[in-house]
């Protein structure tokens, strides 16, 4: 498959990238690792007139620590270099695991954290070649008025399959966005939207420059689990990111976020409340998992049946809580 024609702008500074974005009249896309964008362009889902390369912007390609101890991940840092980052491994192993869960080694060597956080939503009726899509009416995500996934639906249900997104939400991460006026910050939980078309808070002329992970207290434990039918190269059938502070057996600041089953990561607040209440006892964890099942609301049959997604969510909640119970902040976890 070949790429469509486009103009290329190499940005050396954030300012240059923003200027090119503005000049582009909405017909411009940011190219980070390209493992999502270029595939979509080959499918002719995206046909930008101009593509802006941002991996040449130094400030986007580093990991630093803020004065408050927060971790600042440049949007252009590749997933494989983050996977080796000792700060991440130590302070939020769950994020480390989410990062190594993405695609294959090859994909992680190319793909960036910014690209993964901004990953386009996916759908069986949309992520297809031009020829394939030509066989059907143009759907909402492509600018039409119908949805093939749910007949008669008023919105697009394309799925956010990013592996880091649920973890970023669970970590209360802040997305730092650059635009003409300067910088704005959006909490990850608000960055993601429950809409397959406008799936995140970025405006066409904005870009993500970094992701800030708050330091968290010393009792913070984090975990991530991905379920896919095939290890090594697969989008999740469902994934989960969770964070919790455990002190003297009591849980606080519980965040449980399910990804890859809806258009945005689903924050399970009731489930979290059950954990804050019942702690990490066997009974408490079971109860939390049951709560998760009902808390999910309606789900689509996209990629797998709603019933199966619900089942996976329940299992994931149970397993992630078990893992949180067994882990402590300094315990490093290897693999996925």
């Amino acid at each position: 498959m070949r790429l469509p024609r486009f103009e290329y702008v190499k940005a050396s500074t954030t300012g240059e990238a923003l200027a090119a974005l503005q000049a582009g009249d909405g017909q411009t896309r940011i190219l980070a690792g390209g493992t999502d964008l270029l595939v979509n362009m080959k499918y002719r889902i995206e046909r930008p007139a101009t593509v802006i390369g941002i991996r040449t912007i130094d400030e986007l390609c580093s990991v630093t620590t803020g004065s408050d101890g927060s971790l600042h991940l440049g949007a252009g840092v590749t997933l494989s270099s983050l996977a080796e980052n000792s700060l991440i491994k130590e302070s939020c192993p769950g994020l480390g695991r989410a990062i190594t869960a993405v695609g294959s080694k090859h994909i992680r060597n190319m793909g960036t954290i910014g690209g993964n956080a901004c990953l386009n939503t996916r759908c069986w009726y949309y992520n297809q070649s031009q020829l394939w899509r030509d066989a059907r009416e143009v759907c909402r995500k492509a600018g039409g008025n119908v949805c093939h996934a749910i007949n008669g639906s008023e919105r697009c249900h394309a799925i956010n399959s990013s592996d880091t997104a649920p973890m970023l939400v669970a970590l209360d991460a802040e997305m730092v966005i650059q635009n003409r006026e300067g910088e704005r910050r959006v909490l990850a939980r608000e960055f993601y939207r429950n809409d397959g078309v406008r799936y995140n808070a970025l405006e066409p002329e904005e870009m993500l420059s970094r992701i800030e992970i708050p330091r968290g207290n010393t009792e913070r434990r984090t975990a991530f689990i991905k379920i896919c039918s095939r290890r090594g190269l697969d989008f999740a059938m469902a994934n989960i990111g969770a964070a919790v502070s455990v002190k003297a057996g009591r849980c606080s600041q519980v965040r449980i976020v399910i990804g890859a089953i809806a258009s945005h990561p689903l924050i399970l607040e009731k489930t979290a409340a059950v954990v804050e209440e019942g702690g990490l006892s066997e009974g408490g964890m079971e109860q939390a998992a049951d709560t998760a099942r009902t808390e999910l609301g309606t789900l689509t049959n996209l990629f797998s049946s709603a019933g199966y997604k619900r089942q996976l969510a329940q299992v994931l909640v149970k397993r992630v809580l078990q893992e949180l119970k067994g882990s402590s902040r300094n315990k490093r976890r290897a693999g996925k």
């Binding site: 390209g34 270029l38 595939v39 390369g53 080694k105 090859h106 994909i107 190319m110």
Partner: peptide, 8 residues
């Protein structure tokens, strides 16, 4: 190791 099909 990178994929040359997705590298400009």
């Amino acid at each position: 190791a990178i994929l040359s099909c997705l590298k400009l």
